[in-house]
Write a protein that binds this DNA or RNA. Structure first.
Lengths: 243, 243
DNA sequence: TGAATACCAGTTGTATACATTTTGCAAGAT
DNA sequence: ATCTTGCAAAATGTATACAACTGGTATTCA
């Protein structure tokens, strides 16, 4: 090795395998051959194995009893529960933020993001700045997570490492669909209500709103699976869902 | 290697390091020297590194920016949030169980455990079968987790891998204290109410009860930290709490 | 005397070698 | 034709070798 950054190969392994799995290039259930992967990624088996062990913790990959790993496959119920789980955790984060209080500076950042989100969806549905909204939405949710303590933030980040459980799962730039665009109006209303609830120290309301907000992802999931399965390919990791 | 089980050394590494950290044999903040640990456990660095990486995910150990790992240290707030997190996740599990329904056979198992728990705390406080209650309580909670889907169960198990966040954290046989014994009466009443709520499909009540139930652990934590710090040594991993 | 530097031990991250186990396949028996 | 058995290739788990980096100490130079 000849490199600059510390633990470079490990990072390459982690991102490389994650991409291969999420993109669906390796089918769900398929065994992950260490030698083949190591060669494909141009690294040795050691950092690769570290990546596989971590991806098992993240839930993208599962250990085979006889040894090695395979790409995990998810049922519809798995995905629904992962989304519900995110809602519950975000709800907890918001409730605690409301109960314990948030520094004014941070609330200011949230309001600024709300205003930018408003701008992004200005005008008619057809001309809204979808890509910009996608980016801002991801930033907004990350800011919300930042209100929580490290312990809770860690869990949220782990759960959302399953791409279809992330708040941006169905807001990918490759999946710009009318049905998704329309869902953004309700979403933005919920964003504002969540921030308002935190300001008013209304913990229960903030929690309920976060849960209902996550429910939008579930709606979008069901739209993809039941109404337009051609979108499966465009939503990250959704190719791992069977049935 | 000459061994029987698959991935034997990795398991040994994981349990070995976990024990060293939880028991407090290695101080919070101390660097975990790989060569020293490997020699101490009689294994090579490879399975040891796998164990360290996993313990980092579990939260017991943290990566040092310049490389390697150190024993993590927890603030009182960290522990409180971990307990609260368990309460929220158990609450989610029970709510979903209530909403979606539970097979009668499983409810039967829960009732049987409730009866056994009743037996264990029969009679006067002084003569209750504390050790037996401890075991049954752990089994009961595991059965509750079993009501949830794999996704949620995984998260609960990860969170409770921090020993002080587990439902048995303050019910350790080495920490048989009057204050803890007395808390069991209220706890058992909550156990019964939780099962009842699931049977009546009262999801919100089940969730609220699970959260309040976890709050007992917080009370016990505060008792240890504020009233009888000599107990710190007897509660697993509590020596990692600073302040 | 103080600061900068060069060196050195110790440590981690990565690659590779090795032994055991698993698995796929083909041949043979029923 | 189907199931069993044996074997070889491949894959995993572990150990070890190696190179780069970190941190600290002693030396050197101003």
């Amino acid at each position: 090795m000849e490199k600059t950054d510390r633990a470079m190969q490990s990072q390459r392994a982690l991102m490389g395998v994650r991409d291969l799995v999420i993109s669906g290039e390796i089918r769900a259930g398929a065994r992950l051959s260490e030698v083949a992967l190591a060669e494909k990624l141009g690294i040795s088996r050691t950092p690769l194995r570290a990546a596989l062990a971590r991806l098992e913790q993240e839930g993208l990959v599962e250990a085979i009893p006889s040894g090695g790993y395979a790409v995990r496959s998810f049922t519809r119920e798995d995905v629904i529960d992962a989304i519900e789980l995110r809602g519950v955790l975000e709800g907890m984060a918001l409730r605690l933020a409301a109960e314990r209080g948030v520094a004014p500076a941070r609330m200011g950042e949230l309001h600024r993001l709300l205003a930018e989100l408003d701008q992004a969806q200005q005008g008619e549905v057809e001309q809204m700045d979808f890509d910009r909204y996608v980016d801002l939405n991801a930033t907004f949710h990350e800011k919300l997570w930042g209100l929580a303590s490290q312990t809770i933030r860690r869990e949220i980040e782990r759960v959302t490492s399953l791409p279809f459980a992330s708040p941006s799962a169905f807001l990918h730039k490759q999946a710009d669909v009318m049905a998704f665009r329309r869902s953004l109006y309700g979403a933005q209303a919920q964003h504002k209500a969540m921030v308002n609830a935190i300001e008013l120290r209304e913990g229960a309301r903030a929690e309920a709103l976060a849960r209902e907000h996550a429910r939008l992802a579930r709606q979008n999931l069901e739209f993809v699976l039941d109404e337009d399965r051609s979108l499966i390919r465009r939503v990250p990791a959704l190719s791992l869902v069977v049935g």
